[in-house]
Simulated assay, not measured.
Amino acid sequence: MTDQKDSQDQTHFGFEQVKVDEKQDKVADVFHSVASKYDVMNDLMSGGVHRIWKRITIEQSGVRRGHKVLDIAGGTGDLTMRFSRLVGSEGKVVLADINDSMLNVGRDRLMDKGITGNVEFVQANAEALPFPDNTFDCITIAFGLRNVTHKDNALASMARVLKPGGKVMVLEFSKTENPLLTKAYDIYSFSLLPKIGKLIAGDEESYRYLAESIRMHPDQETLKGMMEDAGLVQCKFQNMTGGIVALHTGIKP
Results as ranks from 00 to 15, higher is better:
43 D>S: 13
111 M>W: 03
195 K>E: 11
212 E>C: 10
150 H>E: 15
161 V>W: 03
146 R>V: 01
227 M>N: 02
223 L>A: 09
250 G>Y: 01
130 P>Q: 10
142 A>D: 00
8 Q>Y: 00
154 A>L: 10
61 S>V: 00
129 L>F: 03
125 N>G: 07
163 K>I: 07
114 G>K: 12
250 G>P: 02
162 L>A: 08
51 R>F: 00
80 T>G: 03
192 L>Q: 10
181 L>M: 14
106 G>S: 07
81 M>Q: 15
173 F>K: 06
129 L>E: 04
250 G>T: 12
105 V>K: 15
223 L>H: 02
203 D>E: 14
253 P>R: 09
137 D>M: 01
116 T>D: 04
30 V>Q: 02
113 K>Y: 04
241 T>I: 03
168 V>N: 11
68 K>P: 13
55 R>H: 13
130 P>G: 14
55 R>L: 07
202 G>Q: 03
9 D>E: 13
244 I>A: 09
11 T>E: 05
15 F>C: 08
89 S>H: 13
40 V>Q: 08
250 G>M: 04
33 S>A: 13
146 R>C: 03
6 D>E: 10
85 R>T: 08
57 T>Y: 00
119 V>D: 15
83 F>Y: 14
35 A>I: 00
150 H>G: 00
82 R>H: 12
112 D>W: 01
174 S>N: 12
38 Y>W: 11
229 D>S: 12
132 P>I: 06
124 A>G: 09
39 D>W: 00
102 M>N: 09
